[in-house]
């Protein structure tokens, strides 16, 4: 049942074996899932108890409606880009497993993720333009209103997710640069790449939940 113990010399010099790293990553992602579960549960509770219109009168509507608004189309395309970045990362992994560098796919993934983040930033700025922004940053010329919990939950949840995308991007960039300069990922050794992949797929799955909760329902 139990695997052989590893002496600290081995762990220090070679790190834990791939299966152990993978296991640890999954445990960590479980806690990440609970973080988003907390945020989204809070969203469900406050929205369920919300009195009156949703979104509140005067607040810009981000919800999907028919016919699609311009913002709808942008965010749907953006979601498709993020989800396809999971596929491209998978191609990178598959390439590495076949003995190729996988660099091309890694950079495509980075590009897709970066576009996603940029568009997300554009959406924030767009909403700011519509008057939904943090009131604490109001200046004399610009008075903002966060429109109660509508804005609070939107900025907090997409903000938390955006931070995770950013961390994921930096991890993938680190993998790509390592691969470029040291060629360290081989069909036999690519545990780090695999773990970064787990994280990236997780961030994408969370986006599907976030998108459904904030934009669709």
């Amino acid at each position: 049942m139990s695997s052989a113990a590893i002496t600290s010399h081995e762990t220090e010099h070679h790190g834990a074996p791939p299966s152990t790293c993978r296991f640890g990553m999954i445990i960590f992602l479980l806690s990440e899932a609970m973080l988003f579960a907390g945020l989204i549960a809070a969203y469900i509770v406050v929205r369920g108890a919300h009195q009156g219109e949703w979104p509140p009168t005067g607040a810009p509507d981000i919800g999907v409606q028919w016919p699609l608004t311009g913002l709808n189309i942008v965010m749907i395309v953006n979601s498709i880009l993020l989800i396809s970045s999971s596929v491209t990362f998978h191609f990178a992994e598959a390439a590495v497993k076949k003995g190729r560098s996988g660099l091309l796919w890694l950079f495509v993934t980075i590009a897709l993720g970066a576009v996603f983040l940029t568009v997300q930033g554009w959406e924030w700025m767009h909403l700011r333009h519509e008057g939904m922004w943090f009131p604490v940053f109001s200046s004399a010329e610009h008075q903002y209103d966060i429109f109660g919990i509508y804005g609070s939950t939107f900025f907090a949840i997409t903000g938390f997710h955006g931070m995770h995308v950013l961390v994921g991007l930096m991890l993938i960039l680190w993998c790509a640069l390592k691969q470029m300069f040291t060629n360290c990922f081989t069909p036999q050794r690519h545990a780090a790449l695999e773990n970064v992949g787990l994280y990236w797929h997780f961030v994408d799955v969370v986006w599907i939940v976030v998108y459904t909760a904030l934009y669709v329902v």
Binding site: S31, E32, A33, M34, F36, L39, V46, P135, S152
Partner: peptide
């Protein structure tokens, strides 16, 4: 810890936003 602590982290973050960014959780 893995299941409970992240929920407190989320709540703590919301508290921080309420205090400093004008959110209204």
């Amino acid at each position: 810890l893995i299941i409970a602590v992240p929920v407190l982290s989320a709540a703590g973050a919301m508290l921080f936003f309420d205090l400093n960014f004008g959110t209204n959780f």
